[in-house]
């Protein structure tokens, strides 16, 4: 059941996105999120989708894997869509009016917009960060981007280390969870029947051993790190030093330009552009 979780897994590769500087990828991700949340008109959303498609192609990650990363979120996606569809009240006459169900044009629009937004966010984050950036690269990037905060005594290195270790242990803990589930199933544990509360209660015998073993793992890891001379971020050097290349700057500038594009496109909806084209042509 947990085999499908690909979120937070790094797939080594040699694509353009793999080679891009991780610091720039983080900045671009922020810009990307801004684009997705800002895009309002059909053209702006279209531009956003185009960017998403480009990112997906440049990542070199197989479509099948990308779809897999969306799969666990289907419930959330459908749920938000339905909420938007049924609960949005529009100004015009409802498209569907059947007993208590009223669907308005705005509802349909919101539902589609929400679906696109959520999907873009998931795909964009996976493609930009988790699939194409090794956790240590990401940590280094965050550490270097946030390093000004060290001046006000924020433990940036420690946070970065914690994060990279958390990411490193995701697959290990997933494997462990599967083992525990099998072990409990072998002893006739029932995870699939009953209402939601019963199902939640059935999770307890999975979570407790998982938690205990995680703490034990942490202890051993701490010993192992100490044995390898870990003593915080002071005086630490790096094997892979990040070098920003010209193409990273171009990449960042291009995405910034798209933000501007989205802002402009948001102001003019479809009819305006039609008129504009008409004016230009005739």
């Amino acid at each position: 059941m947990l085999k499908d979780v690909t979120f937070g897994q790094y797939f080594p590769g040699n694509s353009l996105l793999h080679k891009a500087d991780a610091r720039f990828k983080v900045l671009i991700l922020i810009e990307y999120i801004v684009i997705v949340l800002l895009a309002n008109s059909a053209y702006a959303v279209g531009l956003g989708l185009l960017l998403t498609a480009f990112l997906m192609v440049f990542s070199g990650v197989k479509i099948r894997l990308l779809l897999k990363s969306v799969k666990p979120l289907i419930f959330v996606l459908v749920f938000t869509c339905l909420i938007n569809l049924f609960l949005t009240r529009g100004s015009g006459a409802p498209l569907v009016d059947w007993s208590f169900i009223k669907i308005y044009k705005e509802g349909v629009r919101n539902a589609i917009a929400m679906l696109i937004r959520l999907l873009s966010l998931v795909l964009g984050t996976s493609v930009l960060i988790s699939f194409t950036t090794s956790p240590l690269e990401l940590t280094d990037a965050l550490e270097s981007l946030l390093s000004p905060l060290k001046k006000i005594k924020v433990p940036v290195h420690e946070f970065a280390m914690m994060m990279s270790i958390a990411l490193r242990f995701i697959p290990t803990l997933i494997e462990e969870t599967n083992k525990i589930i099998s072990a409990q199933k072998a002893r006739c544990a029932d995870f699939d029947s009953g209402n939601i509360f019963k199902k939640l209660k059935a999770m307890v015998p999975i979570l407790i051993p998982l938690f205990v073993s995680a703490v034990r793992r942490a202890e051993e890891l701490a010993d192992a790190m100490e044995c390898r001379c870990y003593h915080g971020g002071k005086g630490r050097t790096k094997l892979n030093v990040m070098h920003a290349k010209l193409r990273d700057y171009i990449f960042l500038l291009a995405v910034t330009a798209i933000i501007a594009g989205v802002v402009v496109l948001n102001r003019y909806d479809a009819s305006f552009i039609k008129n504009l084209i008409k004016d230009l042509v005739f």
């Binding site: 080594p12 990279s164 490193r168």
Partner: peptide, 14 residues
């Protein structure tokens, strides 16, 4: 020192 559990002493993903 090399410990018993190989999973618990690897710090990085690569």
């Amino acid at each position: 020192m090399v410990f018993q559990n190989p999973d618990n002493q690897l710090v990085a993903s690569v």
